[in-house]
Design a binder for these strands. Structure first.
Lengths: 196, 196
DNA sequence: CGCGGGTTTGATGATGCTCAAGCCCGGTGG
DNA sequence: CCACCGGGCTTGAGCATCATCAAACCCGCG
């Protein structure tokens, strides 16, 4: 894979969702830059301004929040063809409440707020794209929230495995526990119990 | 208040967020219809398709989910100048996972999916508006989710009171409990404890 | 080979649920 | 105007789930 291939991946992703001209494909490709991240490297960090929005070309990130007691809570995992960022910080230039860390060597396309505004002016059709993407994110988070308040850890675990089969090969168990909202010890015990 | 005043309220809300021409104000006003709801009446119901998106002119709604055990979970309250709807159902025409019920006599402006698409074609600037609104909703829900998984009921209660002072005058206690993700009994005990 | 992070196991405890009963209070009808 | 009804709030006792603290284990990597 080379630079052009990465940018085609993004352009294809977009073309599947809205109509764009070849000219617009090119403008979009030029607006984003390629960045690579080694395993454990941070895409952005809680407490700092998150001035990037990233499209994951390959690899995986965990996006998480560290609470006042120092505990980490995974908000979501960003896989290939997903987005990673903190909208609140990106749009307001206030310190981010989230961190994003590579779980393996990864490649992303990034854009900063200024460039994104320029891009939206040049290609207004993208307003619609980002509206649709944000709506999708909102519905996913809404389901996740309602599942979290209505189901216990076992049910949430089963739901995760059903929705993301193979995730246990990709993500260490203590981070799955963090995603489920329980401690690693609890997940370990739970899995033992499920083998009964 | 009359029909024009209601529609001006929406147009003003929009004008505060994006630039629109007088002509566009009028198109927007014509796209929405006025509906009134008596206390306890449903704006939309779980299991049915939610083919409306509502702007609350006056009054309050609770938007909630009934889980598989029959327990209700309030996702959010929609006050004056807020939106109420189920994006997932509205956009996909699939049965809604949420219900919305008036907590008092209320007035809303509603639009259906077809009319909304028409409106977006006639006033493309609204793509941006709805992107910004959805982003705002997403950041609010994100904070709510992270608070829910990282803080206990007392902390969540204090946060709610701080963010929405006066809510206890407007919303019955068992629905505040539902919003907090605990049972009415637990909230009652909690408040007694806080008076120590 | 030994270090260190991740996982497992155990004992104990806090938080909030379940089930059950009583109470308060506003609305309704006689 | 009062009696009754019913929903919502309170209180209590016991319980389930998951957290906490602590120790042992496993295993890849330097």
């Amino acid at each position: 894979m080379n630079e052009t291939a990465y940018k085609n991946q993004l352009a294809d992703y977009i073309a599947q969702r809205i109509d764009i001209t070849p000219k617009e494909r090119e403008i979009i490709a030029n607006a984003y830059s390629i960045k690579t991240f080694k395993k454990k490297q941070f895409l952005f960090e809680q407490g700092h301004i998150c001035d990037i929005e990233a499209f994951v070309v390959s690899g995986t990130f965990r996006i998480f929040y560290v609470d006042t007691k120092g505990l980490e809570h995974v908000l979501y995992f960003a896989f290939k063809d997903w987005w990673a960022g903190d909208i609140a910080s990106f749009n307001s230039a206030e310190p981010s409440g989230l961190s994003a860390q590579a779980l393996e060597d990864s490649i992303v396309l990034v854009i900063d707020p200024t460039k994104k505004e320029e891009l939206l002016k040049q290609v207004p059709a993208l307003e619609r794209l980002f509206r649709l993407i944000t709506q999708k994110h909102l519905t996913v988070l809404q389901k996740r929230f309602l599942l979290t308040v209505s189901a216990n850890a076992v049910e949430r675990y089963n739901e995760l495995i059903k929705r993301s089969p193979g995730i246990e090969q990709l993500v260490p168990q203590h981070q799955i526990a963090s995603y489920l909202g329980i401690l690693p010890e609890s997940l370990s015990r739970m899995k033992k119990q499920l083998l009964k």
